[in-house]
Structure formats: C-alpha cells, structure tokens
Amino acid sequence: MDSQTPMSSSIQLAHGSGGLMTRELLDQIIFSTFKNPFLEQKHDGAIVPLKGPVVISTDSFVVSPIFFAGGNIGDLAINGTVNDVAMCGGVPEFISLGFIIEEGLDTSDFVKIVQTIKAAAEEAGVLIVTGDTKVVESGKGDKIFINTTGIGSPHPRAHISMDRIRPGDQLLVSGPIAAHGMAILSQREGLQFESEIRSDTTCLNHLVSDLLDEFGDQVHLLRDPTRGGISSVCSEIAQDSALGVLLRETALPLDPQVAAACEMLGLDPLYVANEGIFCAIVDAEAAPKILERMKSHPKGGRAALIGEIRSEYPGKVVMESAVGGSRIVTPLIGEQLPRIC
C-alpha cells in the first residue's frame, strides 16, 4: 500500500495507529490541504519565528451535530481559537490542530471538515503548523472532536485588561446575539423557520486589529460571549472589576427569527452562545467613533451600544427592561445547552 492508494470510505482505527494508514490519511488529506513551509518541516512539532511576548490560547470543540447551518466543527475550531487570541489583544499567526476521530466517520465528512478548516484559516490569516490525529473505537467518541491551540504576538497598541475598566465606560457588541446557540438548537429540535437560523461563527481578529490600530488603549477590554452568552461575560466583568454593568434590553441586536426561536423554546437570548461576535468595553468619549468604525467593517455591520459600566451596583449586572423596569442578570447556572461548541 502506498500513499496513492485511495482512502477507505470511512475512518478506521488503523488511521490513528501511526503506521501506513496514518501516513495515508496525513498525505492524502492533511498535508495536501495545508501546504506551508512549517508543516513541511515534518518534525514532530513546528519551529516558528516569534519575537517578544507570545499570546497563546487553546480550546477543544465537541459540538453536536458536527455540521450545522452556517458552519461545521472545523471552522468553529479555527474561529474559536483565533478569536480567543484576538480577545487578549493578540494577533493570531499559527494554529495547532488535534483531531480525535471516532472510528466509522465518513471520510468524505472528514475531508469536508478539513476543507472548511483550510478556508477558515485562510480567512483569518493563520497557518496550521502542527497537528495530531487519533482514532478511538466506535462508541467511545462522537464522530469527531477537535482541539486547536493558537499562537500569536500582542498587538503593539493593545492595552487590554480588567483593571482598565472605569465607571462610565461604554459596552459595545459587534453584532446580533444568540445566533450560534439557536442555530444548533433549532437543528437538534428540528425547528423550521421562514428563514434558516445560521451560526454566526466567524473570525474577528481583523476587526479587532483595525480597532486597536486606530483606537489603541481606548479599548479597555474585549470578550467573546461564547458559552453562557452575554450574561456570563457581563457577570464576569461585574465581579472581576467590582463595578456594575448596565444593559439596555431594547438596544440588544437580535434577529427576529432568533428571537422567535428563543420565545418558542423558552430561552433567554442573553444566555445563548455566540461564536462570531465580541463585547468591547471602551472609553466613553471614544465610544461613538469606535462604534462607527465597527459598523463600517464587514464583521461589525450590526454593532450596537448596549450598555455601560456603573459604580452604583458593584459586582452586579442590571438590565433595563423594554417596559421601563429593571432586573438583575445572573450568570448561567448549570448547563443550558450541552455541547454547543
């Protein structure tokens, strides 16, 4: 058997054995897709050039189903890690890619995921420089799990930290909320809507870099509201900064079909996962310009000013309701939706 033997139609245990079939999988699917000098070193790892401090973030992806409207586990894995590096004020450059595949996964599905990873990495401008593939017995995994680690350098103008938050700072969100969680859930529940709910998974590093280029240390904090949604990000900010967060319900950008799905399933969009938006706490004076800049970027067209930092209720998140009342927003307790990413 040589590397030109066509792959079997499904992934088998031997594809993770380290022997010939592993070679076959790597050559035919991985190396042929991700061509770059670092990967072609064919070391056990990759030697990459980095100067000064390094930003590093790792994340594992176990989403079910692996294919969903708006993406699949592949672009989710790249975007998720790219965004985590960007939220630290980093410029992501290199990605490591680890697969844990359940025996029996259709090879065509694996190829589709790898192709999506390629496209997502290209869009984000990152290189896949090292990786690993393991195969577990049927029933011991669930189709495919992916681990990605992202490495980059800090943006030269970034000065992002919890202790930079001040009362009066404004809270911006880069796009409509709750799309990813509701896309996964409506797929799981077989809900049909007039227009399909699509996951918002996308890379945010270019938009973040643009904001940091222009506004530098006027950006005080960045967070992507993934699992636990906006409520968890705001609760963390309130608790860690010992300041209050005020949210305005009517200002939250929310697509009508996502709002309808939340109504039907009894979920609060504040708690639903996102994969393609971020929250920014910014200097009050600079906020209007930052918002304008976000709106002029393709990844931030529907950005909005949703709240501000207050000193009155330290450690708490308060939301002004549409009818003029107010309520406390608590962090998510327990699991709202397992295996969302």
Binding site: S321, A322, G324, G325, S326, R327
Partner: peptide, 9 residues
C-alpha cells in the same frame, strides 16, 4: 412580572 421589572413599576 419580575423579569420585566413590573413589580417596582
């Protein structure tokens, strides 16, 4: 009632 802050209104 509670979620919309009606009790205080």
């Amino acid at each position: 009632l509670v979620r919309n802050g009606l009790l205080e209104l």
